[in-house]
């Protein structure tokens, strides 16, 4: 079967953070990285290939600047066979709608049986791309999968909802986003990391996909940001490094705050 995995490059969520005194905005040092949630989607595909469907071909699909190729390679190292990277200056500034339009155009071309996404992007902290892409492709959609079972022309997915766990069955082709608890993504061994660059990479422009540049990027964004402000914080935080006495210091704090007697 043909599986596509949508991956996004994001600022490293575990990198050092500081507030820029000039702009009052949070600055993250460090490099961009493959969205950690997407590693679970790749792992899910690799497990399908290693298990029930050995003839699976895994394509990594991303929308992002050329520099995002590092994250594409990282995804390929984890088990992708090839990549499709839509890099176009006119795509810069795309919001969720624009990104969904570009992704859908790229995915339509591939004729995939299963399209996998992460539960959310660590930078945008939204969780709507699966639903948007599925709608544009007119395909069934299941989000936040805690497990995926492959059947004949269908997938069965267990997923959490507000009242418990639903088990749902969707016919393929379909779009599925996976929860971060679906598996433990493996770390690729060095040869796989070295080999990723040599796998087939396709870099496409919007024109290659027939996407109207006016419908995406900053020009086609459906949302616009008119200002920024600072939310009310919780107040002072005491953070200590454990030197062996952290539990004592915590208890002293709780006593001082009269949380424990």
């Amino acid at each position: 079967m043909r599986i596509a995995i949508c991956v996004k490059e994001v600022p490293d969520p575990t990198a050092e953070k500081r507030i820029d005194a000039g702009t009052n905005r949070l600055v993250r040092s460090g490099e961009n990285t493959l969205n950690p949630y997407d590693r679970h989607a790749i792992e899910a595909a690799v497990q399908i290939k290693e298990g029930p469907a050995p003839d699976t071909e895994i394509t990594v699909v991303t929308v992002g600047p050329e520099s995002a190729s590092r994250s594409v390679d990282r995804a390929l190292a984890q088990g992708g066979d090839q990549s499709v990277h839509i890099a176009d200056d006119a795509a810069a500034g795309s919001d969720l709608l624009g990104t969904a339009r570009i992704l859908a155009a790229a995915l339509k071309r591939g004729g995939y049986d299963l399209i996998l996404l992460g539960q959310q992007a660590a930078d945008s902290e939204s969780y709507v791309m699966a639903g948007m892409v599925a709608e544009l492709l007119e395909l069934p959609c299941v989000t936040q999968a805690a497990s995926i079972e492959l059947g004949d022309g269908a997938v069965t997915v267990k997923r959490q909802v507000e009242t418990g766990y639903d088990t749902v069955k969707a016919t393929t082709p379909c779009v599925v986003s996976v929860s971060d608890a679906i598996n433990d993504p493996r770390y690729p061994p060095l040869p796989a990391i070295m080999g990723a660059k040599r796998k087939p990479h396709e870099v496409l422009s919007l024109a290659d996909l027939g996407v109207d540049a006016g419908a995406v990027g900053a020009a086609g964004a459906g949302t616009s940001v008119s200002g920024l402000s600072k939310p009310e914080g919780r107040g002072d935080t005491i953070v200590i490094e454990d030197d062996g006495s952290a539990a004592e210091q915590l208890v002293a704090f709780l006593i001082e705050k009269k949380v424990v007697a």
């Binding site: 919001d95 969720l96 709608l97 969904a100 945008s124 902290e125 939204s126 969780y127 709507v128 791309m129 699966a130 639903g131 948007m132 892409v133 599925a134 709608e135 544009l136 959609c141 989000t143 936040q144 997923r159 959490q160 909802v161 507000e162 964004a221 459906g222 949302t223």
Partner: peptide
């Protein structure tokens, strides 16, 4: 879970901007 998925699909179908 349901509302976010439904609004995602609706925004895509209508070509509407979406804020989560």
């Amino acid at each position: 879970i349901m509302a976010a998925d439904a609004m995602a699909g609706l925004a895509a179908r209508l070509g509407a901007g979406i804020v989560i």
